[in-house]
Design a protein around this nucleic acid. Structure first.
Lengths: 243, 243
DNA sequence: AGTGGTTCAATGGTCCAACCAATTTCTGCA
DNA sequence: TGCAGAAATTGGTTGGACCATTGAACCACT
């Protein structure tokens, strides 16, 4: 009966501070990299304790919106607007083979969808950017005779960015970080990622040809090769574990 | 050459506090809902100021790991382990139609993949659980003559859980929360979600028949109906905005 | 027994004033 | 002019105080 009686909100000091600060950033048109007022000044201007200001800034820091450098100041790290939406994502993934496969499954889902969306929505500039990254990657592949995870990653990032949905890039970035937790020379497979190489260009071709379904299929193939590599690596690991 | 020499950490007080606290939670096997030590006790035990403890807890609160209730205490809100990965997702200008569509695109990608995986991996128990949720949902649909977002959500959750990959549920849960920010009577569409109803059972049928591709296709259809509803709602909104 | 009011200790929220540590800026000497 | 050292700036930490809310215990009244 009283379902529609939400708990009343009496105090929200630090929240109010953040709202005020967001408004300030908007009004001053501050962008990433720029410095915002010192904690002491904020405390004075907003008529709150410096402690409260710090709690508010700690929140923003946790959200990656801001970076605090002792002795220097507090700097914006990303664009911030008063009506932003935050979804804290905490992943409990483990550092084992199963955990890696889990991230790959997410990657398969998102990569396929992003490639498809990209084939529909990418503009000319984005298309050119993707091709540039692709060329860089292929060049690195030739000169170093193997996959370069750095250039490879940038190619995929370009696709995510061109998908028109910022969430893709952010979520995949989390997966990528989990991957890299112990992906220096992953599992002892020497030519890791080799098999995935040709699919990069075929994905791009589908995107350029505005063929979403084709892009999706090629993306799935690419992930499948990575999965195979991983499974091979896990088998190796198992063998070398028998001592 | 010296790439692998990370900067030494002279100060990382609050981070250390969080690590200690995570260890404590692990050791005491504390779960969601349970109360953790008071700030004063933590400060005393860890030999740091109470302010430092507060900054650390503020971080966790921002990540949604913990809830603080004045006069009562600090309570765990989610499972927490020392090796978690935190990735705050931020959606600029999130409270609008574009933001919702963004989450829907993520949902489409994950829902399709999860349904396919589920068709491959779900055991008998999981299958039964999914069907139970489906029955509940259909019953709610009959009695209340409309979609019940609660039962609907539980049905999808059951699928994610049976996919064998915990990341699906975690990521989608974040999307879901954003969805519900203003999804009470979303956008004034009266029979929101009505069209998606039949696809729930068809998805289940494909899963039970161990047909991953079929499950994927049906899941995509379901999301498509939700997308249509959303677009209708946006159109309504636009009309009613003209004053 | 139950209803409502009061008291009181526990707990998170805020404030203050000071000091520490890293950084930046200024200054004065060579 | 160049540069080393002093001084100012700024975030990080501390300890102590007080406020606001909560929840349990207690009490009076019905």
């Amino acid at each position: 009966m009283t379902d529609l009686l939400p708990p009343i909100q009496t105090t929200a000091r630090d929240d109010a501070v953040l709202k005020a600060l967001a408004g300030f950033v908007r009004q001053e048109a501050l962008g990433p990299g720029e410095k915002l007022p010192t904690e002491r000044i904020l405390a004075e201007r907003l008529k709150v304790s410096r402690n409260t200001v710090r709690e508010a800034l700690t929140r923003w820091e946790g959200l990656g919106l801001v970076e605090r450098r002792q002795g220097s100041g507090t700097y914006l790290k990303a664009a911030v607007s008063p009506d932003m939406l935050h979804m804290p994502l905490t992943l409990a993934g483990g550092n084992d083979f199963a955990g890696l496969m889990s991230t790959l499954e997410i990657r398969r889902a998102l990569e396929a969808e992003a490639a498809a969306l990209c084939a529909i929505r990418a503009g000319k500039a984005e298309l050119a950017e993707i091709e540039r990254k692709l060329d860089l990657m292929e060049e690195a592949f030739q000169t170093r005779a193997g996959m370069s995870s750095e250039e490879d990653w940038e190619f995929h990032q370009a696709i995510f960015r061109a998908s028109g949905n910022p969430l893709f890039e952010q979520i995949i970035a989390a997966m990528y970080e989990m991957f890299h937790r112990f992906w220096e020379h992953p599992l002892g497979v020497r030519d890791f990622g080799h098999a995935s190489f040709p699919y990069h260009r075929s994905i791009f071709n589908c995107i350029a040809a505005r063929d979403p379904d084709g892009a999706r299929v090629e993306a799935l193939k690419l992930i499948a090769t990575v999965e195979d590599d991983l499974k091979r690596g896990a088998a190796n690991l198992k063998l070398s574990d028998r001592k």
